[in-house]
Amino acid sequence: MYNTPQIITVHAESISLDDPCLFWAHSPDNHFISSMEKYGQIEPVLVMAVADQKILVAGYKRVKALKALKRKIMALVLPVADPYLKGQIYLLSNTGQNLDMKKTVLALRYFSSIGRISEEILTNLHLVPGSKLEQLWQSWISIPCSWDTLLAKGNISLECARIMQNLKAEDLEAVYPFFDQLSWSRSSSLNFLTWLGETARMKKAGICRLIHELELAPILQSRLSPGDKIKKIMLVVFQARYPVLSSLKGSLTRKLRQIGAKSGWKVEHLDDYESRELVFSTRVKNIQDLQKALRGLEQISSSKALENWPVK
């Protein structure tokens, strides 16, 4: 493609470092600068000549390091290319980099901004075109980029993108502080958004209003630990989404715990009221434990504790 590659040497000041195709650009650390000082520039950076300016398309860290060392820069001059090709060149010259969430989203945002996320780009980002993961990323880049840092920090799961892409701007804004201030597990973040969204649709209200009605902001601002805040928020949202189930579960769990506490048995109901089955479990180390456990069971069966449970 490039028949006459030309290597030049230029001052750092004459290279423009502003092209958006440098989507992963970040400044060098001291270690990098020292090694540049020690070994010099081994590889040329890539530039494109536009009028009398050189536009950098790969080698940001090296240019910054050499500039700090007040050294001239060796650059390979490429023919002028469109934003897609510039992005592709940048991507390919950085293939050795570890592709984390932050890098993937930055690259996808760039290519999406120029309206072209080709299969080639996806493959270079280790995304299988048409895969579930690729679809999740496509959904993610449809939501505002203010969310990207929260994704990179691990406060929210990429899988939430499926739900978020259908939320209105004001609803997205309303849930933002919850993810800005708290780091959610995959299942908690999915459940939080799903339950909120579904309750809002059931009540024909916006998420924004629902958050207000459920008084979730005061929980977020409370002095509880982050883990306890999430637990409490989830409980409130679950109660709103499943009012009958949560009240049944609440009273049954209390009752079964009471029974279990006195007997040494853990008593659970696992079928969400689809059956009347209970699971009794205990641990024994020896025959004495076993005898004690049997006495506990007898106690339960002779009491009235389990009459008419759980569905009347």
Binding site: E198, R201, M202, K204, R241, V244, D271, D272, E274, V311
Partner: peptide, 23 residues
């Protein structure tokens, strides 16, 4: 919006309305 009722996972792998509500 009925799909957002109180459904639980039944023992046949299908979601169904919470038992007291459907009875």
């Amino acid at each position: 919006s009925y799909i957002f009722n109180e459904f639980i996972m039944g023992m046949d792998g299908k979601s169904r309305l919470l038992l007291p509500l459907r009875t």
